[in-house]
């Protein structure tokens, strides 16, 4: 791999109560590249991505074994500051989840909880994040309107902007387009292409064409196991595993 591994997952196991949701998954996600995680529903890809910024901590009955190294440091170590971790590893969720606040407040929220006061600097961050998320032109005249009034696609770009505003190093996206129409999806995909210049991106997607279009690396999950991981081109054109080939050629899933 031409650049160093930003995230290195080592023998990760996840349990929901008695359910073994992820079985011994290991992979390296390179810096400034887009890594896509694909697989049929229930294969564990969303669970996996939520391990990368410890969002699974929120779920009570969930237990995680193994290690995830961010720049060589295990985020599951005892002394990890989860709050700082999530500042470095941002996340965009499946369904757009803007706060019921104004557009401006949504973006400003992240910087504010990290101690930034209201003022010019914050205004600039808001504008820059919205520009990065390709939303600025559409909302610049109504920053004080409620974010709930935006369309689904706009809301999702708002959530991406909100994530970028805290200047993370890694952006996790959990099926960011699954609730969107094709036009909005195309916009988000363009955006992902832009993002990898500055961020390391991990995206879970249900849509194989999308994975092929946007990602550099692809991991294929099936029944909680990481079946195959590698260069996207290789995975799609010349998969090593039969299960991968079956999925990609649409024989199931």
């Amino acid at each position: 791999m031409e650049t160093g591994a930003k995230l290195n997952v080592d023998r990760l196991n996840v349990f929901y109560g008695d359910n073994h949701a992820i079985i011994d998954a290991s992979m390296k996600m390179p810096q400034y590249r887009v890594t896509a995680l694909i697989g049929p529903s229930g294969c564990g890809k969303s669970t996996f991505i939520r391990c990368l910024n410890r969002m699974n901590d929120v779920i009570e009955e969930c237990r995680v074994d193994g290690a995830v190294y961010l720049d060589g440091v295990d985020i599951y170590a005892k002394d990890t500051d989860v709050v700082q971790l999530r500042k470095r590893v941002g996340m965009v969720f499946q369904k757009p989840n803007p706060f019921p606040k104004s557009i401006y407040e949504n973006i400003a929220y992240g910087p504010q909880v990290h101690g930034m006061k209201k003022g010019k600097e914050l205004d600039e961050i808001v504008e820059m994040s919205l520009r990065q998320a390709a939303l600025w032109e559409e909302v610049k005249d109504r920053l004080d309107d409620s974010a709930m009034g935006l369309s689904g696609g706009q809301q999702q770009r708002l959530c991406i902007a909100r994530c970028l505003a805290i200047n993370p190093e890694v952006v996790l996206m959990d099926e960011p387009c699954s609730a969107l129409d094709p036009i909005a999806t195309a916009k988000i995909e363009d955006l992902i292409d832009q993002l990898k210049k500055e961020y390391t991106v991990v995206i879970v997607t249900h849509n194989m064409q999308q994975a092929a279009r946007v990602s550099d690396y692809t991991g294929y999950f099936y029944l909680g196991k990481l079946i195959e991981f590698g260069n996207t081109k290789q995975i799609f054109e010349n998969p090593r595993e039969e299960s991968t080939e079956n999925y990609i050629t649409g024989r199931f899933g």
Binding site: M55, Q84, R86, M91, F93, F99, Y109, C163
Partner: peptide
Amino acid sequence: VPMTLREGSLALGATQWQTVRRV
């Protein structure tokens, strides 16, 4: 209050109390 809002806030690195108070 939907769980997704809390997750949205926590994913931005807000602390528990910040999430409670502001979201």
